[in-house]
């Protein structure tokens, strides 16, 4: 068997799939984004850049990027710090280490749908007898209507704690793997130099975790960018989705596939803008890290 034939035998099926399910869709969407296409996935009328102009001037799409920014501003630093703290705590103990690691990792077994169910209808159900309101009442505070409260926007607390619970264990595992790669001899040298434990953390652990930290930050940011599940399930009701707290994918979902008519022209333009933004961030990050 020649190398060429063997190569295509191995790589061909996968490459064909990538072509059909990644490259063709993106190409088709770029095309659709220049057309009017309502309730059809074939181009109807050429409109030039109007779909893009609509998306970039009309409020909802830009507001969805604002919503993403608010979400990311909370969830990225909180997950980063708490996952690192958990990783340090777990790796510094020996008795019951596997138990604690498993407990913190277990929420990964839950889907966002199940977590949304617990957060929306149990912990933060807004009833006086809900768990969060029960805890508040111990401190004499009034009950809060968590998921429907817009001023102050308590729904952020619901969404951020939900994602924290679900993803902390995953990032803790990444930090533990990073910590295990630090050569013990570095700590021995630091101890010989008389470093206190926070100095060892500041001058050995943190610099040695640089690769892991950059990867974790990027994964957290990309994850927040794609947020959909918990927003849809926590805030969606039988009367539809509220007009606020719509991150980009929620907005695109209701534009392209919502019950109010399918608009694939604008939906495609939105998808293209989101793709360009995320590719830009990835390339920029690669350049900054390589420096």
């Amino acid at each position: 068997m020649s190398h060429a034939r063997a190569f295509w035998l191995f790589v061909g099926p996968f490459a064909a799939g990538l072509l059909v399910f990644v490259y063709v869709p993106i190409g088709w969407s770029v095309l659709l984004s220049f057309f009017d296409a309502r309730n059809t996935v074939t181009p109807v009328e050429f409109v030039g850049l109007r779909n893009y102009a609509d998306m970039l001037t009309d409020g909802p799409f830009l507001r969805s990027l604002g919503t993403f920014s608010v979400f990311a501003a909370f969830i990225v630093p909180l997950t980063f710090v708490l996952a690192l703290v958990l990783a340090l705590l777990v790796s510094q103990i020996s008795f019951m280490q596997a138990f604690f690691r498993s407990v913190f990792f277990l929420p990964t077994a839950c889907s966002y749908v199940v977590a949304s169910l617990v957060w929306k209808l149990s912990v933060f159900n807004g009833l006086r007898s809900g768990l969060a309101n029960t805890v508040l009442s111990w401190f004499g505070a009034d009950p809060v209507a968590w998921t429907v409260s817009t001023s102050p926007p308590w729904y952020w607390l619901v969404l951020v704690t939900l994602r924290l619970w679900l993803q902390l264990g995953f990032y803790m595992i990444l930090f533990i793997a990073g910590l295990q790669r630090i050569p013990p001899v570095l700590y021995e040298a630091a101890a010989l130099d008389g470093a206190r434990s926070w100095q060892a953390f500041r001058f050995v652990t943190l610099p040695q975790l640089r690769t892991t930290s950059v990867a974790v930050l990027l994964l957290l940011l990309i994850g927040a960018y794609q947020a959909f599940d918990e927003f849809y399930n926590v805030l969606g009701t039988d009367r539809g989705y509220p007009p606020f707290a719509r991150p980009p994918l929620i907005y695109l979902y209701y534009t392209a596939l919502g019950s109010g008519g399918q608009d694939f022209g604008h939906g495609s333009a939105g998808a293209v803008i989101l793709t360009v933004l995320i590719v830009g961030v990835t390339l920029l990050q690669g350049r900054v890290v390589r420096r």
Partner: peptide, 20 residues
């Protein structure tokens, strides 16, 4: 051809994929 797709999270392109 393969690694170029790593930059694009699948969820972001759900509308294009649905179209196809």
């Amino acid at each position: 051809f393969v690694v170029a797709t790593l930059m694009i999270p699948a969820a972001v392109t759900f509308v294009p994929t649905f179209v196809v």
